[in-house]
């Protein structure tokens, strides 16, 4: 198939059609040259007739004009032949193109068939079947994994929930000590009323009460 893309005409095969074309072109050239000669002859015949008439040779002048008429008919016939040749040349060129197109299409059709022949329908069916099976298998495995994953995920989620709860618990606990010390701070106010029994020692008792508050505070968390 490599030749298809290459240069098949590189060797330059000369076909009979090429020679025929060449001959027609040569023939056309010869006809054109012939016509040129005829036109010169017509011109000469006209001048000859005029000269003879000037010399009063009426019969011979008529003869020359008859000859001229004949030559003129010939040129128009030759003109027609040239046109005909050009027409045929065009037709051959067109036919050659058509043939080349046909050859290329034929070749590409063969190539297409060859490619197609390498693909057997049963094999394709088997292949599609295999692919379907493989897909089913894959789907089943995926499903299993998905189920396993949901069980596992549930467990994990629960564990995470517990962990989160623990975190929340431990996060809440440290708030407790911060709340309680508020109470002991108000507590020391209480003993101040009791030492009124002994006003002299009130100052000392207040100081002792300050210490006493600390002392009283300590057993509380325990």
């Amino acid at each position: 198939m490599g030749n298809l893309m290459g240069k098949p005409t590189k060797k330059g095969n000369i076909t009979d059609a090429d020679r025929a074309m060449l001959d027609m072109k040569t023939q056309k050239r010869k006809l054109v040259e012939y016509n040129k000669r005829l036109e010169i002859a017509i011109q000469l015949a006209r001048e000859k007739a005029r000269g003879l008439l000037a010399e009063k040779h009426r019969d011979r002048a008529l003869q020359a004009l008859k000859q001229k008429k004949f030559l003129e008919e010939t040129t128009s016939r030759v003109d027609e032949q040239i046109t005909q040749l050009l027409f045929t040349i065009g037709k051959i060129q067109e036919a050659q193109q058509s043939q080349q197109l046909f050859d290329v299409m034929k070749q590409s059709n063969l190539a297409l068939k060859e490619i197609q022949s390498q693909i057997k329908v049963e094999e394709v069916e088997r292949l599609v079947e295999d692919l379907n099976e493989a897909r089913d298998h894959h789907d089943y495995v995926n499903q299993l994994i998905a189920e396993h994953q949901t069980v596992e995920a549930n467990e994990l989620a629960e564990k995470e929930l517990e962990a989160l709860e623990d975190v929340l618990m431990t996060e809440r606990l440290p708030t407790v000590p911060s709340d309680r010390p508020a109470e002991p701070q108000s507590l020391p106010d209480v003993p101040t009323t009791i030492p009124t029994l002994n006003p002299d020692g009130a100052e000392a008792l207040r100081q002792a009460a300050g210490e006493g508050v600390v002392r009283m505070e300590e057993p509380l968390p325990a």
Partner: peptide, 11 residues
Amino acid sequence: LFQGTLDGAEG
């Protein structure tokens, strides 16, 4: 280069 069948037909 190739020859036609007519005289002087060099193609």
